[in-house]
Amino acid sequence: MNKVMGNKRSIAFFVLPALIIYAVFALFPIAYNIYMSLFNTDLMAKKQFVGLGNYIGLLKDGTFVHAFRNNIFMVIGSLIAHMPLAMFFANAIFKKIKGAAFFQTVFFLPSVICGVAVGLTWTFIYNGNYGLLNAFLKMIGLGSLQQVWLANKKLAMFCIIVVIMWQYVGYHMVIQLAAMRNIDSAYYEAAQIDGASGWKQFTNITFPLIKPILKIDAVLIITGSLKYYDLVAVMTSGGPNHATEVMSTYMYYQAFNILKYGYASAIGVILMILCMLSVALSNRVFKESDE
C-alpha cells in the first residue's frame, strides 16, 4: 500500500503541475508584494526603502483605520446575518416542503450574477427620489424614514451589507442544506418516535451534525468579507467621504489612482495577515467538533 501511495514520483506527478503554476503566478506575486511594502515607491523613478514606515503610516492614517473598522463590521455583520438566515432557510427547505427545489434554485440565483448588475439594480432600489425602498416605506406608513440611503454616511455601509447578504444568503444556504441532507435520516426517525419537536430536532440533531460545515462556511464568509471589493466599488466607490471605504477599495485607490504602490502593498499584506488570523481563530472556535 505505502509503496504505491507513497511513491515520490507519483506524488510529484499529481502535485507538481498545480504547485508550479501556483508558485509562479500566485506565491511569487505575494512575495513581491511583501517586499514592495517596505518601500516608498511609485514603481517608476521613486524607490526609497522605508522599512516598516508604510505600516506605521497606515496606523496613523484615519481613512485606513476607518476602512479597517468597516471590514470588521462587515465580517461581524455577515457572520451574524448570513449564518442564521441561511440556516433558517436551509432548515425550512430541508423539511421536505413543497417547492423545495424551486426555492433552492431561486435563492442561489443572485450569487450567479455579476457585481456590476447587482450594484446597478440596488442603486436604483436605494435611490432617494424614486427608489423602491422609499416607495415601500411610504406605502406601509413609515414615510418619515425615507431618505437618500447610500448618501447617508451612517447607513451606507449597512445598506451595502444588506445587498451582500441578499446576494450570498442563498449560496451559504446551499452549503448548509447540503450538509443537512447528508445526515442519516435514522436520527430523525428515532426523534419522531420520541416525539421531539421540530426545534428540539434542530438543536439536538441538525445543528451539532452540521457544525463542521459551519466552520468551513465561517471561513468562507470571513475571508470573503475581508477581501470584499465588488459591490462597494460599484455602488459607492467608498463614499460618501470614505464612509464605506474598505481595505480593498482603499488599496486599489492608493495603488492605481495616486501611485503609492508601496503603501498599497502594505495594505495587501495586512489584509492577508488578517485573513490568516481569522481563519486560525475560527479553527479554534470550532475545534471541539473537529476531532
Partner: peptide
C-alpha cells in the same frame, strides 16, 4: 493561502 489574498494586490507583479 491563496484564498486569503485579494487579487488586486497581485496585478502589478
Amino acid at each position: 493561502l491563496g484564498m486569503m489574498i485579494p487579487i488586486y494586490g497581485l496585478i502589478i507583479p
